[in-house]
Write a protein that binds this DNA or RNA. Structure first.
Length: 267
DNA sequence: CTAATCACCTGAAGGC
DNA sequence: TGCCTTCAGGTGATTA
């Protein structure tokens, strides 16, 4: 469910409300939410900062870090009006503030670690990080023999993109999803970099995309799904050329693209 | 190193 | 109505 824009929307909402708060108690209704090897008591810790790298939410505590990944269907809800139907963890903070982790599919994970590196060592630069320049991005592409779809979905190089925003970024930069990363022209790579930033920032402005499960910390849906060019648009005409948008499995994921507008590089 | 497949889970949707 | 299959904003392990 959530990719970078959805996670960013959530942390912008929880940051001002939970920063500085002490954790009093944790109700764990689905223990596998916690990675066992990291299971350490959280009660008594204070949340000092709320950050994000890719799709990982990082709550910096006075001692250690609580890292949360929503995976496919996780939701963080602040003071929900009713008990959510698929409540997995309920965090009680001082002043009666509660943060519920609702997660239908039970894929979401919470990690409590001393250093965030323990969880994020394989994760690349955040897609919106200032250090990730177009030059750095092009160098990573040149070194990779992977297909561009797999490259962008893998979080090892750039963190934060998922299936929706990969498809939208490739369409907008006119690159076929079966292209080979290292074979992109310099111009194509530059377009891709720019469009990734535009797509993500636009989606953040729209409070993320809601296909089915995604809700922000206030339980509200996003709006970015109303502006998709290709994602779930198979069978409809391309907005640029009128050709029919196709959907086929690439890198194991349903992939949406225009066979006319998106050029194949390599392969 | 890259690619493909399965595993982890639940629920919605479509075919018959 | 009901049963069966397929699919889903993700990622990690395992196997070619």
């Amino acid at each position: 469910m959530p990719e970078l824009p959805e996670v960013e929307t959530v942390i912008r909402e929880i940051r001002p409300r939970i920063t500085g708060k002490k954790i009093e108690k944790l109700d764990v209704l689905w223990p596998k939410t916690f990675e066992h090897r990291f299971r350490i008591p959280l009660a008594g810790r204070t949340i000092v900062q709320v950050d994000r790298i890719g799709k990982y939410i990082i709550l910096k505590l006075d001692k250690g870090n609580l890292i949360i990944h929503l995976r496919m269907s996780g939701q963080l809800l602040l003071n929900p009006a009713a008990i959510p139907a698929h409540l997995r963890v309920l965090m009680h903070m001082e002043g009666g503030l509660r943060m519920a982790f609702n997660d239908v599919r039970k894929f979401g994970r919470w990690y409590f670690v001393q250093s965030e590196k323990e969880v994020l060592k394989q994760i690349g630069m955040d897609a919106l990080a200032p250090e990730l320049t177009c030059t750095v991005f092009k160098k990573m592409l040149k070194k990779s023999g992977m297909g561009i779809k797999a490259f962008l979905l893998s979080q090892r190089f750039i963190a934060g993109l998922g299936n929706i925003y990969v498809d939208e970024s490739l369409f907008r930069s006119r690159i076929h999803p079966l292209s080979v990363s290292a074979k992109l022209s310099a111009e194509a790579a530059g377009r891709l970099f720019a469009e990734i930033r535009k797509v993500l920032n636009f989606a953040i402005d729209q409070m993320g995309s809601t296909i089915s499960d995604y809700r922000d910390a206030n339980g509200k849906v996003g709006n970015a799904q109303n502006f998709f060019y290709v994602y779930q648009q198979q069978g409809r005409p391309c907005v640029t050329c009128g050709a029919t948008i196709l959907k086929q499995k690439i890198s194991g994921r349903g992939t949406h693209f225009c066979p006319e507008c998106q050029k194949l590089y390599g392969r």
